[in-house]
Simulated assay, not measured.
Amino acid sequence: MLCQSCNEREANVHITKIINGVKTEMHLCDECAKAMHGEKVGLGYEMGMPLSFQNILDGFVEMMGGFPQSIIGEKTCPLCKMTFEDFRRNGRIGCDECYKTFKDEMIPLIRRIHGNIQHNGKLPRRTGGILKYKRDIDRLKDELKNAVSKEEFERAAKIRDEIKELEMKLKEEENRG
């Protein structure tokens, strides 16, 4: 495929942008891509610079409409004195207190990047049974609410029975431990 800019050399840099569901692709050769150096492409990624978490973070913030100037200029961690602007610039937190200080600004970013703000990693085999049952029960309760709101009562009855069964297993597991 030829470069879409010069139409002379082979394109080996491929850039895909999806904005509001509209996909745009650019296919460039090395020279044309280097000529774009300094011009932002996509999520805050600048051609010629390595892709970093900070570039991605800046892109998400940009997509969300940026942070209000009042947050950027005023918020400071009381422990390490890091400002929100410092966090925004380098993409790193200074200390554990920063998580509390900048919580309101970080939650939407984390949710957007990871899809959730609660970590649901692997469970240990020995002690994970109780946690697994609790997670499954919580998940099924959400499904039950959804089924009832959609008036899917047969499905809701099956889910209710599954919840009762898991609750019994959970009690057995707790009594064993």
Rank of each mutant, 00 (worst) to 15 (best):
L43S: 12
K100F: 12
D30G: 11
T83Y: 07
T101I: 06
F67G: 09
N55G: 13
D30V: 13
E154Y: 00
K75N: 09
L79W: 08
V41Y: 10
L131H: 06
Q69L: 11
L123V: 13
E97D: 11
I15F: 07
V61Q: 12
E25C: 04
I19A: 02
T83C: 02
T76S: 03
I107G: 06
L170G: 09
R9M: 03
I18W: 03
N20E: 15
P124T: 05
M168R: 15
E165N: 13
H27K: 11
T16F: 05
D104G: 12
L57D: 06
C80Y: 05
G177N: 13
K134P: 04
T83V: 02
E151W: 00
T83E: 05
F102N: 04
F60R: 08
E74S: 13
G21K: 06
E85T: 08
D136Y: 03
E165T: 15
M49K: 15
G177C: 11
G21C: 01
E154S: 07
N120E: 14
T127S: 12
G44T: 06
E8D: 13
C32G: 03
K132L: 09
G48A: 04
E162P: 00
R135M: 03
G129W: 00
E97A: 11
K145I: 05
M63V: 12
E172V: 06
Y99A: 13
M63Y: 09
S70V: 13
G177E: 14
P124S: 04
I15G: 03
M49Y: 14
G48N: 10
G59P: 00
E62Y: 12
L144A: 07
K23A: 04
M26K: 10
G42N: 09
R155L: 09
L109M: 10
L140R: 00
L123S: 01
L140N: 08
K81H: 12
A11Y: 03
C29G: 07
G177T: 14
D58Y: 08
L2N: 08
M36A: 13
E174L: 02
G59T: 05
